[in-house]
Design a protein around this nucleic acid. Structure first.
Lengths: 233, 233
DNA sequence: ACAAAAGTGTTTCATATACACCCATGA
DNA sequence: TCATGGGTGTATATGAAACACTTTTGT
């Protein structure tokens, strides 16, 4: 019988692996992303980028993404929804070394953030409206494009938007969340018809008060899981 | 002004990076995937897996995927459509070393394969119906699940199916391609109505002959690009 | 003439879209 | 009472789904 010899493949490791995350939240009908200060002299000085960093030896990319997210943004990753987007492996995406980045998108409801998490800190990490996104380090603007496209498309066929909303919300809030992410107006009556038909949310039989207008009925999603649905938008 | 010190991140590289590809073709109303013989003693002996391998220092994951695909399957990657699926980073997905895999899905029309490429070679690389998929090495069965799901979903909202069909095809062939990948029967009349309304294909005003039955009209896709469409299926 | 695959239309039902007014509240 | 956002229904158009027979060819 033919002896099969071991293929001579290089066993050394050529590229470092990083996990970079676009963390989104929704406040006051604006989609915000959490950015950090990036300093990597001599090539990158006082730049701005997405939170991320290298994988540890015994760590999956998902774990690394969550770890760096929390340590570099000071936003607790408890309650954060995260999903992998795409892996970027261009040779020169990092000017110093060969680094391959697994990009992630993460979501957190604004109301689950502490006051400090909401405020941020301009020297370390803070929220920026995606409409006013600055030039970012590395290929992070490319990651943002993928993340925004993924988010906008995914709210159309899943219930992922629940990961940006508080546990209890009004149908108007839900509608505004869609409008903000899609960047277009939705007809209120048609929207409510569709949401009710899909039976994804349940009325809590209580109303939000404290505004000077008519109180709005509160709703909740029936489950915490991100589920597929017939087209919503 | 505060001097910002360089973060002490490990500069050594902990995980090797590989690119693994599920290459599909469509023959005789069967979806086939190209598998290879895998030998990596002592853990993996005479196993079966997807074609793939490590990245070179100056190579993107896409390039590595195409290179290993061609060298490990003996299928020319000319004419192959490829897209990234997902990155798998479980600590123990490779029993020997820490290897992170960027998984790809690739498509090639059966008619573009040479006779040798169609036949394959049981000692190195050959075609297997996805309905008869064996147990694969590493986490390659997981990759196959992702690939099959992606393919089935993507034929529904893009023209990706063109990458599995010859340049000229009949509407029946097109319908069978959808049926094979989706695993369900489609109504012929409704299907043709939809395809014609979408204007994705153009009649070539010639008919295929050589069968003992009524000749069928030949069509071509208008473009070679994979484009988004309103829902097809 | 027959066997086998190619090709074609209509009806019904469900969903999508367009559109405007009244309601409840706090100030 | 007024300003503001919350909440509702109907009519039309479009798309989805169900369904069966005729045509063309080679043998």
């Amino acid at each position: 019988m033919k002896k099969i010899t071991k293929t001579k493949e290089p066993q050394i490791h050529f590229a470092a692996l990083a996990a970079d995350t676009a963390l989104f939240t929704l406040e006051n009908n604006e989609l915000l992303v959490r950015l950090i200060r990036v300093n990597r002299p001599p090539h990158i000085k006082d730049a701005i980028g997405l939170p991320g960093g290298l994988l540890l030896p015994k760590e999956t990319a998902d774990e690394a993404a969550l770890r760096h997210l929390e340590s570099k943004t000071d936003v607790s990753n408890k309650g954060v929804y995260i999903e992998q987007l795409y892996t970027f492996s261009d040779i020169n995406r990092d000017p110093r070394n060969r680094v391959v980045a697994v990009a992630y998108m993460a979501l957190i409801p604004w109301k689950e953030l502490s006051e400090n998490e909401q405020l941020g800190n301009i020297t370390k990490s803070w929220w920026v409206p995606v409409k006013k996104l600055p030039k970012l380090a590395y290929d992070h603007n490319k990651i943002m494009e993928v993340a925004l496209r993924r988010l906008a498309s995914k709210i159309g066929y899943t219930t992922i938007i629940k990961k940006l909303l508080p546990r209890e919300f009004t149908l108007i809030e839900l509608e505004h969340a869609y409008e903000t992410i899609l960047g277009e107006k939705i007809d209120r009556r048609n929207f409510r018809k569709k949401i009710k038909k899909l039976k994804l949310v349940v009325s809590l039989d209580k109303k939000i008060r404290g505004f000077k207008w008519r109180p709005a009925m509160l709703y909740s999603f029936k489950s915490n899981k991100v589920e597929h649905t017939p087209n919503i938008t």
